[in-house]
């Protein structure tokens, strides 16, 4: 929102860090503990600002890259209804990216800087979008599982201590429910169809189950940013807590579809009421995050091409605006 004039607070700025006194930090933590929201121009520790910039921009990048796996099926949707739904969903993802970039900009980072970091490969985005969408059932699996996992993550973020992020998340969550429900309904339609259609749904579940569980991030024991983010109330639940919640609500949904979750060790623990599951293949997660997933190169190349292809449009719009402004001054 009010980004102009905040740009000097760059990362690694020793002056900014050096000026932070214990009293300032204590007063800030007291505000957080009192559940006060922090707003854009309020004083905040540089590390809080940097953490939020990293998290919100990664979140925005994920929405923007996330348009690709589904956009891939826009021209091949089986009916006009499904095509209109998918188009609206992909458009929502673009919107979510824009809400989030706008929230990140309140922290003093420019849009150009964030987009530049994404295109150069410096910034990360969610590992899930580096998996290919091979069949139409994948569109259902993404809505049901990927958006389902995203909702699980995002609902607590609506209460995040940083006001602009929290407000963006409230807006996103309102729209996200449509995404998940259309995905589940798509899966349901396939599961009630022919044997081939049901097999296609099962195959999509097989491929997306584990990557969806990885969306919650590393185990709590190995998650590097968690403790501080919890203290700052950016995060409200740990990665493993959210992952468990997701598994607990999703397994019965799979059973209703008549599909089998691809985990031989999955079983309900009657005492705890939670499902137990196999260990996650974290090597795969770290490979995908560090750029070696099935589609990382393709996703980034496509984003770079879109940015390059649009350059003349952005330039022309700016030239037109300048010309019009000059004419108004002259008149």
């Amino acid at each position: 929102m009010y980004t102009q004039g905040l740009d000097q607070a760059g990362k690694g700025d020793p002056g900014a860090r050096g000026e932070e006194t214990a009293a300032q930090l204590d007063a800030f933590q007291a505000r957080i503990d009192a559940e006060e929201k922090i707003e854009a121009k309020d004083w905040m520790p540089e590390a809080y600002r940097r953490t939020l910039i990293r998290q919100i921009s990664q979140h925005a990048h994920s929405e923007i890259i996330g348009m690709q796996p589904e956009g891939n099926w826009l021209t091949r949707a089986p009916t006009l209804k499904r095509k209109a739904i998918l188009l609206a969903k992909v458009q929502d993802e673009a919107g979510h990216g824009l809400y989030l970039y706008s929230a990140a900009e309140t922290l003093g980072v420019s849009r150009d800087q964030m987009v530049g970091d994404l295109l150069s490969g410096k910034a990360k985005y969610s590992s899930i979008f580096n998996y290919p969408t091979l069949t139409w059932a994948d569109i259902g699996a993404i809505g049901w599982l990927v958006d389902g996992a995203a909702i699980m993550n995002q609902i607590p973020l609506c209460r995040c201590s940083y006001g602009p992020y929290s407000r963006a998340m409230i807006r996103v969550c309102k729209e996200e429910s449509f995404h998940q429900r259309q995905g589940y309904e798509l899966m349901l339609t396939l599961c009630r169809g022919t044997d081939e259609q049901k097999a296609m749904a099962q195959d999509a579940l097989n491929r997306f189950w584990w990557p969806a569980l990885m969306m919650f991030g590393p185990n709590d024991a190995t998650s590097s940013h968690s403790a501080q983010s919890m203290a700052w109330k950016i995060k409200r639940f740990s990665n493993d807590e959210l992952r468990q919640k997701f598994i607990d609500v999703t397994v019965p949904q799979a059973e209703f579809l008549g599909l089998t979750v691809p985990d031989d060790n999955l079983k309900l623990n009657e005492d705890t009421g939670h499902y137990e599951h196999s260990d996650i293949d974290w090597q795969e997660f770290f490979d995908v995050i560090s750029g070696n997933g099935p589609c990382n190169k393709q996703r980034l190349a496509k984003r770079c091409k879109a940015q390059d292809d649009g350059a003349w449009v952005r330039e022309a719009a700016r030239a037109y605006a300048d010309k019009k402004a000059a004419a108004e001054v002259a008149a």
């Binding site: 824009l98 706008s102 963006a168 700016r318 605006a321």
Partner: peptide, 11 residues
């Protein structure tokens, strides 16, 4: 509601 980037007022 939030913010947007645009080349001019109409956009």
């Amino acid at each position: 509601a939030g913010s947007v980037h645009a080349a001019d007022d109409e956009m």
